[in-house]
Computed example of a mutant assay.
Amino acid sequence: MKRPSVPTDIEEFERALAECLTVAAQAMPDSPMLSIVLRGDDGLRTVACTHARAELLDELQEAAGRGPVLDALNTRRPVTVTDLAADSRWRRLAAESPEVRRVHCEPLESEGALLGVLTLYSCRTDALAAETLVAARVTAGHVGVLFRTALGVARMREVAAQLREALTTRAIIDQALGIVMAQRRCTAQQAFEILRHVSQDKNVKLHQIAASIIQTVSGEPPQRPRFEEPPQSTAGHRS
């Protein structure tokens, strides 16, 4: 399955993930260490955690190529380790972190695509509280929603940037058309055909040909129109 694209404003997205973990930790009575690992083309990366130790445990598993985090990624199912020290599958992880006794991993998905894993590391020997597991499932679901929202915002910004560029190049072409019409005493359609043929003959984009015409006539590069960002609306504000 194709991996989902990461939102372009990754810092904002990761900041939101860190806030999610902070809220989730407050709802967990047994205070486990939390981390969120995202899967990318260059491997796994811990993008948010409540303790530096949790990030180190994530890195140990990736380096070893095995661990409950990788199991959750491979199976796309929650993984619970009731006693890390007694589990023969992950002796190295247990040896590196003898204080960690319980681990719980929740896969993170968005519209069927696997994003990564939310992991709870606990130093307690008793079972994780029911409230903790519920909070983990709710947080995992919220991360999926957050990802879709962030991706939608990123796509809208990309479309807006493309529109601004299209409007800019169109404005430059229109200026060049006016120059050609004046010089050749021709219609706008005829001027456009002249520019198009030059573009094809020189294998140069039409807006670049237009820009060179403007610079030749005016002695300066064409002025790009400025598009102001719309003001941010404020809830409850009335003008």
Score class of each variant (00 low, 15 high):
residue 117 V to A: 08
residue 123 C to A: 15
residue 29 P to K: 06
residue 215 Q to S: 14
residue 155 R to A: 12
residue 66 R to F: 10
residue 84 L to N: 01
residue 132 T to V: 06
residue 16 A to W: 04
residue 42 D to E: 14
residue 68 P to A: 06
residue 2 K to S: 15
residue 55 E to L: 04
residue 48 A to S: 06
residue 210 A to Q: 01
residue 169 T to R: 13
residue 9 D to E: 15
residue 77 R to V: 06
residue 11 E to C: 09
residue 114 L to E: 05
residue 103 V to L: 08
residue 62 E to F: 06
residue 226 R to V: 12
residue 64 A to S: 14
residue 91 R to K: 10
residue 117 V to G: 03
residue 141 G to S: 07
residue 196 R to D: 12
residue 170 R to K: 13
residue 27 A to L: 14
residue 50 T to F: 02
residue 164 R to G: 02
residue 25 A to Q: 10
residue 154 A to R: 01
residue 9 D to Q: 13
residue 56 L to H: 05
residue 220 E to R: 14
residue 217 V to E: 04
residue 229 E to S: 14
residue 52 A to V: 09
residue 11 E to M: 14
residue 151 L to W: 02
residue 205 K to E: 14
residue 10 I to M: 10
residue 64 A to W: 08
residue 156 M to C: 11
residue 108 L to H: 00
residue 135 A to N: 03
residue 221 P to W: 04
residue 63 A to W: 05
residue 20 C to P: 02
residue 147 F to C: 04
residue 167 L to R: 15
residue 154 A to P: 01
residue 186 C to L: 07
residue 8 T to Q: 11
residue 204 V to E: 11
residue 102 R to M: 10
residue 191 A to W: 01
residue 99 E to R: 15
residue 192 F to P: 01
residue 46 T to P: 01
residue 39 R to Q: 12
residue 177 L to M: 15
residue 100 V to M: 09
residue 157 R to Y: 06
residue 188 A to R: 15
residue 171 A to L: 08
residue 70 L to E: 00
residue 145 V to C: 08
